[in-house]
Amino acid sequence: MKENGATIIPFALDAEDEGNEAGVELAEAVRMAEAIVFASAEPVSAKALAARLPDGTDVRAVMARLHGLYEHRGVNLVTIGDGWAFRTAGDLAFLMSRDAVQQKKLSRAALEVLAIIAYHQPVTRAEIEEIRGVETSKGTIDTLMETGWVRMRGRRRTPGRPVTYGTTDAFLDHFGLEEIRDLPGIDELKGAGLLSSRMPSNFAIPQPPSDPDLLSDDEDPLTDLDLEELGLLTPRITDD
């Protein structure tokens, strides 16, 4: 088929979809979702897809079909947080290594803080210091925020209202996690040689939150005044 001089390859239907109006509509919705995710620089959420696909579209069914289509391709559809994105198949990542930009390695302190935030979120700077047993510089947390892996979540409902920190979808994307609950457990960490086999018997790894985007009962959301105070928002100029 040609259109405006270009060859158009029709979207392939499964045998069960041919001659089936609902199947044809699903296939067209899959094509549309494919285009939306492909064109986006960030993972696309179910809400964003639902807003752009035909009314009544079963987004989960559409993305399940699209996932299957790319399952054995050089590019896979992956779930990141509550969204979807196309990524190079894991077994082909070596092909991209020669073109990869060399990233500055995080310091040991930054890695420790990142691990604490990932497993203990929401967590304050004072709580991070208590867990590490040493003072944590503001620069270390700033570095993690610059990577896009850590964000300010809210304010703890305690004296001083300290800021709480948590991870981002960019953190999940970088480490190949669908959700924060996919972080390795104690057995996996021991198997990878990241924990000593002689850890105290009462040592335990906290269970990450099921939905890190939801504020906990002892957190308040960040307001514009908070953001101004933290230097994340330009102060408003008011006329006297």
Results as ranks from 00 to 15, higher is better:
residue 212 P to G: 07
residue 169 D to V: 14
residue 42 E to M: 10
residue 220 D to K: 10
residue 205 I to Y: 05
residue 127 E to N: 05
residue 193 G to M: 03
residue 89 A to N: 09
residue 170 A to H: 13
residue 96 M to D: 15
residue 227 L to Y: 02
residue 214 L to V: 12
residue 58 D to R: 05
residue 216 S to K: 13
residue 50 A to Y: 01
residue 16 E to W: 04
residue 114 L to G: 04
residue 44 V to Y: 06
residue 197 S to V: 07
residue 132 R to L: 15
residue 137 S to C: 00
residue 176 G to N: 11
residue 123 V to M: 04
residue 121 Q to V: 06
residue 128 I to W: 03
residue 142 D to C: 02
residue 239 D to K: 10
residue 12 A to P: 05
residue 230 L to W: 06
residue 124 T to H: 09
residue 139 G to H: 10
residue 23 G to K: 05
residue 5 G to L: 08
residue 162 P to K: 10
residue 77 L to W: 04
residue 75 V to P: 02
residue 89 A to P: 05
residue 91 D to M: 10
residue 141 I to E: 01
residue 31 R to L: 15
residue 196 S to G: 07
residue 86 F to G: 05
residue 239 D to S: 11
residue 205 I to P: 01
residue 164 T to H: 09
residue 98 R to K: 13
residue 185 G to A: 05
residue 175 F to L: 04
residue 98 R to E: 14
residue 67 H to S: 15
residue 150 V to K: 09
residue 226 D to H: 13
residue 43 P to S: 02
residue 127 E to R: 13
residue 85 A to F: 01
residue 192 A to T: 03
residue 166 G to H: 00
residue 152 M to F: 02
residue 206 P to D: 00
residue 100 A to E: 11
residue 240 D to G: 08
residue 43 P to T: 01
residue 115 A to M: 08
residue 149 W to V: 03
residue 225 L to S: 13
residue 65 R to Y: 02
residue 199 M to V: 14
residue 190 K to T: 15
residue 204 A to W: 03
residue 116 I to E: 07
residue 206 P to S: 03
residue 205 I to F: 08
residue 113 V to H: 01
residue 135 E to R: 13
residue 133 G to L: 06
residue 215 L to R: 09
residue 102 Q to P: 00
residue 99 D to F: 15
residue 134 V to I: 08
residue 53 L to S: 07
residue 19 G to R: 00
residue 214 L to Y: 02
residue 102 Q to A: 12
residue 206 P to L: 04
residue 179 E to I: 08
residue 103 Q to Y: 00
residue 51 A to S: 15
residue 145 M to D: 01
residue 35 A to H: 08
residue 24 V to C: 08
residue 165 Y to G: 05
residue 233 L to Q: 11
residue 64 A to S: 12
residue 230 L to V: 09
residue 125 R to Q: 14
residue 197 S to C: 00
residue 78 V to L: 11
residue 148 G to Q: 03
residue 122 P to C: 10
residue 131 I to W: 04
residue 3 E to C: 03
residue 69 L to G: 03
residue 57 T to K: 07
residue 32 M to S: 11
residue 201 S to K: 14
residue 121 Q to K: 07
residue 120 H to W: 10
residue 76 N to A: 10
residue 132 R to Y: 05
residue 205 I to G: 00
residue 79 T to L: 08
residue 199 M to H: 07
residue 215 L to E: 09
residue 142 D to N: 14
residue 68 G to C: 10
residue 219 E to T: 00
residue 130 E to P: 00
residue 93 A to E: 12
residue 134 V to W: 03
residue 156 R to H: 12
residue 51 A to G: 01
residue 2 K to R: 12
